[in-house]
Amino acid sequence: MAVHEATRVAPHHEEEHNRPAMNQMGLWLFFVSESFLFAALASARFYIAGFDRPEHLNQALGLGITSILLTSSVFAYLAEAAIVRGDRAACKIYLLATIFLGLVFAGGVAIEWSTAEFTASEPYGTAFFSMTGLHASHVLSGVGLLALTYRLLSKGHFSAESHWGVEASIKYWHFVDVVWVFFYPILYLFSW
């Protein structure tokens, strides 16, 4: 009976021990699957519009929002580093900065959409609005995740020893940033 009990309990402990690795692997597999989606849109851009891009593309706005998103990634890194050493207050401040910059980025994309001199019925326009739209939806969901993380931090959740929620939401934010690292030049800068 005692042996049977020990056998029944042991797998549960093993699962708990492996949970951090399972969490990490699950998150990275999610990133890989999302990458295929973004890669498909990026390749479609070249398939339907080649390397063409409008003459009067708002390059300054593109550079501006890219700088904002990359800066937000730096703040997100600092937020994670803060919770790793147990500094909940600093983590909250950096998370707020990340959220703010993320919203500014989304606002910049909205301005780009409203002032674009091309339409969605044109090949480049189709690619542009699809790519920036899908990316912006990920940015907004990332902002939502970070806001939830901030709220949980305010309620006393997470610590230096246990902060997977913070790490996962920030990793997601960095993933969204990596996607833009490729999307920005694909839409604004590449030529051949």
Binding site: P20, S162, H163, H174, F175, V178
Partner: peptide, 25 residues
């Protein structure tokens, strides 16, 4: 340039090497 930037973010910010480690947190 893009690949270098993405690699830097993956390594320093996303800690990609941790994907194969079972660290407790």
């Amino acid at each position: 340039i893009n690949i270098a930037e993405a690699a830097a973010i993956l390594w320093f910010f996303m800690h990609v090497r941790r994907a194969w480690r079972s660290e407790e947190h």
